[in-house]
Every structure is written in structure tokens, then in C-alpha cells.
């Protein structure tokens, strides 16, 4: 698994826009691409409709995964926002992370909006360096 991930400025802007539009609730979605590169974002509904929690409905998750696979891409992770806290995994994020290979991307709206990426395995977080690219 790569310790770096490329993502275009346009997709980063899309993440900020979605997080701002859904604030004060947490927003969420699925990341498509390859190991080391995010190629598309698939926004999904936050089934929890909460300012401090997100969950993705299994049926919507299945439909999104199917759409991504049919496009020829791979599911590489998930993203969500922290409307009022930093872009690092909370205790809840760590406890609810079940996929050690997934990229967990967090958008913070606290202060200057920021995006950081992580892998979470067995309670341990490792930051993945985001490399913004043109586009």
C-alpha cells in the first residue's frame, strides 16, 4: 500500500464544497481510484444525519460499489468531514475502522479547511501524504 496518495485540486475543492454544503452535519462518501491515486468521489448520504457521526447505509454502499466497479475503477476508501474538529481520526473513527487497506480521508472545517488521509489498522493510525495534482 502506498504511503502517498495523489488527488487533483478539483477533487479537493469538491470535498470542501460537499463538507461545507452539509455542515453542520458530517458529510461522507466513497473514494474510487487505484492504490496511490483518487480518481473520483462518490458522495453518499450520511445515514446518521449527525454533526458528530456518520454511517453509510449498506444498500447505498452496495449500489455505489457496483457503480464504481462498472466504471472500471476500484473502491479505495471512504471520506467524511469533521465540521468542528481536526482532520485526524477520532476514537470513534478508530473504533469503527474495519478495513486496514482502506484510505480514510478526513475533511476538517475547523479554521482553515484541511484534508488529511489515513490508514487505520488494529487501532493504529498512519498518515498518508496527500499530493495535490493539477486538474
Amino acid at each position: 500500500m502506498s504511503d502517498r496518495v495523489r488527488i487533483t485540486h478539483a477533487l479537493l475543492e469538491q470535498l470542501h464544497a460537499q463538507a461545507n454544503a452539509d455542515a453542520p452535519l458530517e458529510t461522507c462518501g466513497i473514494l474510487a481510484g487505484t492504490d496511490g491515486e483518487v480518481s473520483a468521489l462518490y458522495p453518499v448520504r450520511n445515514a446518521a444525519a449527525s454533526a458528530t457521526y456518520y454511517s453509510i447505509d449498506p444498500a447505498e454502499q452496495f449500489a455505489t460499489y457496483t457503480t464504481i466497479r462498472e466504471s472500471g475503477a476500484e473502491v479505495i476508501g471512504v471520506y467524511h468531514s469533521h465540521p468542528a474538529s481536526p482532520a485526524r481520526p477520532s476514537a470513534t473513527d478508530i473504533a469503527d475502522a474495519h478495513d486496514p487497506e482502506a484510505l480514510y480521508l478526513i475533511i476538517s472545517l475547523l479554521g482553515e479547511p484541511t484534508v488529511r488521509a489515513w490508514r487505520i489498522a488494529e487501532g493504529v493510525t498512519d498518515e498518508v501524504t496527500i499530493e495535490p495534482t493539477e486538474g
Binding site: 446518521a48 457521526y53 456518520y54 470513534t92 469503527d96 474495519h98
Partner: peptide
């Protein structure tokens, strides 16, 4: 499909 959930608190 591993469950996807989490949160800021």
C-alpha cells in the same frame, strides 16, 4: 463490504 462509519467525537 466492510461497514463504513465513524465520527468526530
Amino acid at each position: 463490504m466492510l461497514h463504513l462509519a465513524g465520527g468526530s467525537e
